[in-house]
Amino acid sequence: MTWVAWRQARSAGYGLLAVTLGFTALALLERTEELSGMTRSLSIYLSLFVGVLLGAPLLAQEFEHGTYRMVWTQGVTRVRWLAGRCAVALTITLAGTAVVHGAVIALAEGGRGRPALLPAPVDGLDTAGLSPYARAVWMLALGLLAGAVLRRTVGAVAVTAGGWMATQLLFDNGLPRWVPDGWQDDFWAVQLGASGLLLGLTALAVVGTLFALGLRPALPVRRPAVTLVRPTPIRPD
């Protein structure tokens, strides 16, 4: 299953690798040029790429090309197949996010005597700590859900992009407004709370995906026993 999942995620993985390399190059540039935190500001877009390149097409393409009829009739259950594909996609997502996050901290800002792990709170809420990871995983899950429900790649990509904008709105406008004054003092608590919220949404999206694929966990239902009886042929002799 791992090979199949990797083979299917390969081209999206290469796309994400290119994006990651782009961010790394930008971070290296920021080391020598004054870019006023551009790498960090732009790093929020990584999760958009994750959702659009990796998440949205993962299921939508199976439906669009009808290949789910081929792969769901192989000897592996749908749940195991989905788990395998998600595991590979999740690994790619986390690795890509870690590279970009690392590039922001170590390359772009590391050389300038700023505290590496503690950015200015206001713009750090969505780019520090767990946030980048939680956002990327949430975008992946949203892409899956959109693909499972809409069964069309274009639609799934559009919904995922819309979800990304909504998330951004939440971080930019929502959170600073809703949390009590002086939240900057509790930066990490707010930050952790926001990440927790996204991971909660992720869990909901995963459950929704399972439902959309008809994989609701089977409740133990007492089924009537069915026994086959073969009528005894009457032989004249």
Binding site: Y68, R69, M70, T73, T77, A218
Partner: peptide
């Protein structure tokens, strides 16, 4: 959903979907 049956049944859909 039954892996024991999935292994024993092959299906070829009408449009022969392949990757």
């Amino acid at each position: 959903g039954d892996p024991a049956i999935l292994d024993r049944v092959a299906f070829l859909a009408q449009d022969k979907p392949l990757y």
